[in-house]
Simulated scan of single mutants.
Amino acid sequence: MYIDGIFVGSAHVDDKPPYNRPMGPVVARGGASGVVIRHGKLVAEWGDTSRPDMTFSIAKSYLAILTGLAVDKGLIGSIDERVGERVKDGGFDDAHNSAITWRHLLEQTSEWHGELFERPDSVDWHRQVGPSVSSGTSNAKGSERALTAPGTHFEYNDVRVNRLGLSLLRLFERPLPEVLKEHIMDPIGCSTTWAWNGYETSWVDVGGQRMQSVPGGGHWGGGIVINSRDHARLGELIKNEGYWEGQQLLSQERVRAMLIPSRLNPTYGLLWWLNTEKRLYSQAPETSVFALGGGSNIIWIDRPRDLVVVIRWLDKPCTDELLGKFTSAIIA
């Protein structure tokens, strides 16, 4: 059952030159590992759960948490506020981009158009990841298409997610890894071995200081490198709706908002995946929510069962069956 997926792609396999080279550090991957947390206690683990590893698009779910923190701190009035009202770096000035809200970026419906850190948003046009509201497309990834109005088209697009990361950096005026460490990772007792790396091209000026913006994945290298146990702690925080040992680190309202199905893709919330109508995984409970990354890196949370499971480097075709085995072994 624990067949190793072997996946290790530092740049997306479908990217065409010159966009197929890594711009950030790439870490050699470890073996399959994982943990099972039930009722807040470690009940099972396999592999080296203390080894930091690349985690790819799970970083997107961390960006959602930081966005929630920005709302809690008043740096954003509402996720339905236009990004350009507070972020004044030229990225949201034109007629098309000026209509983009934080919700659009979080739901991957922004249609933000431009180039960021030497990558145009068009590199991910027609990208197919996970179930979609459409029946699919025969168009090649990166092929030309017409832009639509912000909020009218779901597309999994790393350039646009990276634009969210840069926008948050502008608001916090501090490197996002520092913000995450202070407000989330240290309070929940994570190790000091995790890192969130940017690109060689993602250094920007923020208030006269040179800071590195960090991406929402490892598409072109960089991203979050972290161990399975630290992922599990983050999963516990979300399962407990932002509460940790007497502290409300992230408001309950923000956590719940992340896990509401979006209008255009009911299996997607705010950079978190949802098992709506069991469309993602038929053998997992419909109440399951997931942070998902390439190589079948998974944080699986099922609040009614008081369950958090972290899985690293699973062979992708085995995922649904494995989740089903865990589900059948647990009495709700």
Results as ranks from 00 to 15, higher is better:
3 I>M: 10
4 D>N: 15
7 F>A: 13
8 V>F: 14
13 V>E: 15
18 P>I: 00
22 P>I: 06
27 V>R: 12
29 R>Q: 11
29 R>P: 09
30 G>S: 05
33 S>D: 06
42 L>M: 11
53 D>H: 08
53 D>T: 09
56 F>C: 12
64 A>Y: 07
71 V>M: 12
73 K>F: 03
76 I>W: 12
81 E>L: 08
81 E>Q: 15
82 R>D: 00
86 R>M: 09
89 D>P: 07
112 W>I: 09
131 P>M: 07
135 S>L: 15
136 G>L: 14
138 S>A: 12
140 A>G: 09
144 E>P: 04
155 E>P: 09
166 L>C: 01
170 R>D: 00
171 L>K: 09
173 E>C: 11
177 P>A: 07
181 K>H: 10
187 P>L: 05
187 P>I: 04
191 S>N: 11
197 N>M: 02
200 E>Y: 05
200 E>M: 08
203 W>K: 14
204 V>A: 12
204 V>E: 03
216 G>M: 02
223 G>Q: 06
223 G>V: 07
238 I>R: 02
238 I>L: 14
240 N>A: 13
242 G>E: 00
243 Y>W: 11
246 G>D: 01
258 M>I: 02
260 I>D: 03
266 P>Q: 09
270 L>W: 14
274 L>K: 11
274 L>D: 05
282 S>D: 08
282 S>K: 14
283 Q>S: 13
287 T>K: 05
288 S>A: 15
289 V>L: 06
290 F>I: 08
292 L>C: 08
298 I>R: 09
299 I>D: 07
300 W>H: 15
307 L>A: 06
320 D>Y: 10
322 L>I: 15
324 G>T: 01
